[in-house]
Design a protein around this nucleic acid. Structure first.
Lengths: 171, 171
DNA sequence: CTTTTCATGTAACAAGTTACATGATTTG
DNA sequence: CAAATCATGTAACTTGTTACATGAAAAG
């Protein structure tokens, strides 16, 4: 149940509306967790029913600003510390396993596209890093750790794909 | 719809029963895609209805050995080449984003456990590599690429977690 | 006054999890 | 003959996706 905790996590940093949260899912959280609008609004309703968040303020256009409660913070902490991470799923690496289903030339092309995509995402993240004001509040400290993870991940991805393509080329 | 393609991919290598596939999901495919028993049997039924696989042989205990059809191979190829990979979800990196929800000491402990887990998985994969007969059939070639990806991923993960813990320690 | 942005919600469906239920065959 | 392994399936539930539906407020 990670969507629930992603929402709690975002609201633990600052209160916000469903729309505000969607911006964050589409931007800062994009590489870690995706969510659809209908999922977010649905979860906000359930979270409010469960008392983990409350409506702190109502604004124009029916805007409802949600705020995390003490119970919500407790639940977030519990998830952070006690809950085992779920098994990762990666359909890209699944495709690599089954690369013998396509021709060697197509396999090399596939790996080329993987390398390209990783390079692109890497540059994207580097730009984010360069554009961001890394003052030393808590959010920036941990945000920087997450960003660095992304940078290393994409670099590793790119290097692996290039290595793999070269390896296939040898034969 | 990646489970469907994971099943097709496995059957493209060799025919097998639901039970055989479950072994593969639990062992060789474990780091790329997980599936439950009920999901696999359900998908086998749907795939057979759609004509992408057929029952090639029935054995003892109601065992049904499925085989991929030409339509199935076409569908697998299509997915390999034309379908965009889905956005990755990683609840571990999600936790990193929200690390300010726990104390600095707990955050360091969390990163320590991440490093430990990555080290363990890395050793596990190294053992797999050392135990395996890497003769040069297609399966081994691509299996080796996937394994190398896992090795690099876990190493990166471990190094990042150690770096991050050290970084927090400074302050 | 028109377009863009902000803002929420529902319905129908597909994918994934957990728990239950059953039983044949092989191995020790 | 008891235990482990092989083997399939269903039911209830949760999570995630896609598409639709609506409209207020701000910006140009």
């Amino acid at each position: 149940m990670s969507l629930r905790h992603a929402v709690l996590g975002l609201l633990s940093e600052e209160p916000g509306s469903g729309w505000d949260l969607m911006q964050k899912f589409d931007h800062s959280l994009r590489h870690a967790w995706s969510a659809t609008q209908s999922q977010v609004y649905g979860e906000l309703g359930k979270l409010a029913d469960a008392g983990l968040i409350t409506v702190a303020e109502e604004g124009p256009r029916g805007r409802k600003v949600y705020e995390i409660t003490e119970d919500g913070r407790a639940e977030l902490r519990h998830w952070m510390i006690d809950v085992a991470p779920r098994p990762r799923r990666d359909d890209l690496i699944l495709r690599v396993f089954f690369l013998n289903a396509v021709s060697p030339a197509e396999a090399r092309e596939f790996l080329g596209r993987v390398a390209e995509a990783a390079t692109l995402r890497h540059e994207e993240l580097r730009e984010v890093r360069d554009r961001t004001d890394w003052s030393d509040d808590a959010l920036s400290v941990y945000g920087a750790l997450a960003l660095e993870w992304g940078l290393r991940f994409e670099a590793m991805h790119r290097d692996w794909a290039e290595w793999a393509r070269a390896k296939l080329g040898e034969e």
